[in-house]
Design a binder for these strands. Structure first.
Lengths: 150, 150
DNA sequence: TATTTCGTTTAATCCAAACTAAACACATTA
DNA sequence: TAATGTGTTTAGTTTGGATTAAACGAAATA
């Protein structure tokens, strides 16, 4: 007994919703992304609200978040007034970049503290510097992946 | 006019709290981590609650989370009944591992879906597989960092 | 044993983020 | 023009996680 496709699709959409939530995105944004990954085609604004069973306001917010991260793109269809959305061309590279940006922000915050620690406090300075280095390393590793893909 | 050390310390603790929150940890856990990074020494349970101005319950919860991720360790002091906590030996390696575990869980979830997609749906399967591959790559890159450090 | 000192757990509260419904602004169409 | 079809914004509500106070159990001390 194999699972019906429609069920697999729903499960996938919900899974991506949970994963997104885990990554600090609204769950509805994740579900929207999941739907577009699955379908592949351009889907109309109203259809998204209908299929995901959320308000138009939620679609508006979620789509703008995903757009800002360049995971999806808004497209126009000739003769159609509605906005359509579809998966961005290389969403994963952009996903990596968003992660990298977040890491760099964290490192910058820590670096700011580092500048306020007097030279005398070498031990403290060392521990804080190690923390900053961690973010530098992680960000660097992600940059490497991005380069490898290019 | 340089900033007083105590102020720099407080700022740092709060910053780590915000960064932790951004990473899906309770803010109080991040503040606890920040304090232990700064101080370097073993700090008593009651002192943590006092210095961070939170309840003992919060310290209990936060410390257990950080312990589970091996970012801090619980230590005993001879003749002292209180628990003491201090920064783990190599907290950043363990931090990386926690991240990697999370990524692997996400990938496993997506892989499960992948197995439910019939062969005929090559396009869908391709897109979902690309998503899974993204997590595989990212996890692999992190594993590389861990190895480099060893 | 009784008391005190711990850390944990639980039930209730708090708070911020997410969501909705409705108002809105703008463009298109009739 | 008026009416309709759009996406956005906003005010209010809902919801879930974080926090607390208090009860609890265990261990040390008296």
């Amino acid at each position: 007994m194999t699972k019906p496709m429609e069920q697999t699709r729903c499960d996938f959409i919900e899974k991506i919703g949970l994963i997104a939530q885990n990554d600090g995105l609204p769950r509805s944004a994740g579900r929207l992304l999941g739907l577009l990954v699955w379908d592949g085609t351009a889907v109309a604004f109203a259809d998204l609200a209908e299929q995901l069973q959320v308000s138009r306001g939620s679609i508006s917010t979620a789509s703008r978040i995903l757009e800002a991260r360049r995971l999806i793109k808004r497209v126009a269809k000739p003769g159609q007034r509605q906005d359509y959305f579809q998966l961005a061309d290389d969403p994963y590279a952009n996903m990596l970049q968003s992660v990298a940006v977040g890491l760099d922000v964290a490192r910058a915050e820590i670096d700011a503290t580092l500048g306020d620690i007097p030279e005398g406090e070498a031990a403290i300075k060392g521990r804080v510097a190690a923390y900053a280095a961690f973010y530098t390393q992680l960000s660097g590793a992600i940059a490497t992946i991005v380069d490898d893909r290019a």
